[in-house]
Write a protein that binds this DNA or RNA. Structure first.
Lengths: 261, 261
DNA sequence: CGAACCCTTGACAGAAATCAACTAAGGTGG
DNA sequence: CCACCTTAGTTGATTTCTGTCAAGGGTTCG
């Protein structure tokens, strides 16, 4: 791997504090690869051989059962994913595929545990990262169980606007069908829900969404720090925490033939 | 705290491997308390001052929003809960209340981080526990998004039967209204779903559930290790992992006046 | 005994999935 | 360069599912 990439990874919260020697031995066997869109990196049920780090592009985490599929999260640069499976040395609970052209660093997960024991800082960083992931999924679950589909969509739109500095609008970072799956509805339902939110000052034009009256939308979404996450601390600087909402993925994902279920 | 309790806690996977001195300094300031049923131990949004360990009884983790409430998990002895919030020093995402008469050990969470840095074994144990919690929530979410309510109920029943050694039946460990909330439906819907499963060889008599044809039920639930968890390893010995399904709580929870939303 | 609660049942309304058809945009290949 | 094809998205009609409201039975506890 090139030094520039190493430096980027080194700067991740997960690796920032760890011992230099350990970092080198860990990344020595790592390799860097760039994939086109719609490439499946990980298959549910497989064994966790590599810890993945998204460097560019974005990766969809999804789950399947009986021919159904649902997207659980989208991972954006620069974040890791499937950390938990690596640690437990257990089968993946989720599959992963690239959305756009995506560069991924893969770190062999074989000796993570021994490094934990030798590098307290790395262990602490891992704990912090895992706790953040855990809380992220809990929020997702709370959303699903406490809000209606319409409220989830409204809350999602408000989160997006808020995370981009409370501008007047934004362009969807993912395809609508993916957003629908993330929100737990069918694409048809999402389409109707979008239309129903026009009464709340939401204008939709293709991928572009603009708000004329955020307060009106907030009356639907009833934003809550415990469901939507805390307000972004600084002026829209990513915290480095795993961005498990559908955040900043490239909307320009190149089309690729997708197998029908 | 008494020595017998200390020994029990010491035997938890989270504490088993940690340094004796650290364990003592951690539990020195801890205290032990027994609560009646329906006592709220933790309020969503509060700050995480204590790591909780359930010694006897059981604790419901639930979340609220806009007057709605949903139960996220039930914690059974002997397990910890709200570990993630303690680590992040962040507001609780869930509330907690006792179900039956419940004994809880509360460990001050102030200096967890420093212990992590000094005690690699404890750090590793924490990582393992967090990873298990994370995967547990992911499974819950997958259930909600991929299965219908009927399938979730069927799968729940099969999990219960399986975790108790594949007997002919079992008695519900929690009230039906709580099970309904956990499964993400109203009590009325659960009642109807139960009835609809009678066609699949499910007999309900109060809290007692018996199966005449598990294979028939499996055709509805389509059990899957990635949604329902792995088959219990030994003959129904708890793994010590946090039991986040509605597992073995006492069904005899004493009634208490519950405030209506 | 009465109050409070859980559970069930019925009737109804609302939400969302499904099925089908149609449009529009992008890429492909002749 | 254009015709064609694939796919995302929308819209409509319909069905299925689920929540809501209301009422009644049974149990527990004071």
């Amino acid at each position: 791997m090139r030094n520039t990439e190493l430096a980027e990874i080194r700067d991740l919260p997960l690796f920032r504090t760890m011992d230099e020697d350990n970092f080198l031995s860990l990344t020595q066997a790592a390799y860097d690869q760039t994939f086109p869109a719609q490439v499946q990196l990980i298959e549910e049920g497989g064994t966790a051989d590599f810890l993945h780090v998204v460097m560019e592009g974005s990766v969809e985490l999804f789950a399947t059962w009986q021919g159904h599929e649902t997207t659980m999260a989208v991972v954006n640069p620069i974040s890791t994913f499937i950390l938990a499976a690596c640690i437990q040395d257990a089968p993946y609970l989720m599959s992963a595929r690239t959305l756009g052209r995506t560069r991924v660093v893969m770190v062999p997960s074989v000796d993570l545990r021994t490094i934990f024991l030798n590098d307290p800082n790395f262990a602490l960083a891992t704990i912090t990262e895992l706790a953040a992931c855990y809380r992220s999924v809990v929020r997702h679950t709370k959303n699903l169980k406490l809000r209606t589909a319409r409220e989830r969509l409204a809350a999602y739109i408000l989160r997006q606007v808020r995370s981009r500095g409370n501008g007047a609008g934004f362009t969807l970072p993912v395809e609508k069908r993916l957003l629908a799956s993330y929100l737990g509805v069918t694409p048809e339902s999402l389409s109707r829900l979008m239309k129903s939110l026009q009464d709340c000052g939401v204008h939709i034009e293709g991928q572009r969404i603009t708000l004329t009256d955020p307060a009106l939308l907030a009356e639907v979404a009833k934003p809550d720090a415990l469901l939507d996450g805390p307000d972004p601390a600084g002026p829209s600087i990513g915290l480095g925490l795993p961005d498990c909402d559908l955040g900043t993925a490239q909307p320009d994902a190149r089309r690729a033939v997708r197998e029908t279920p």
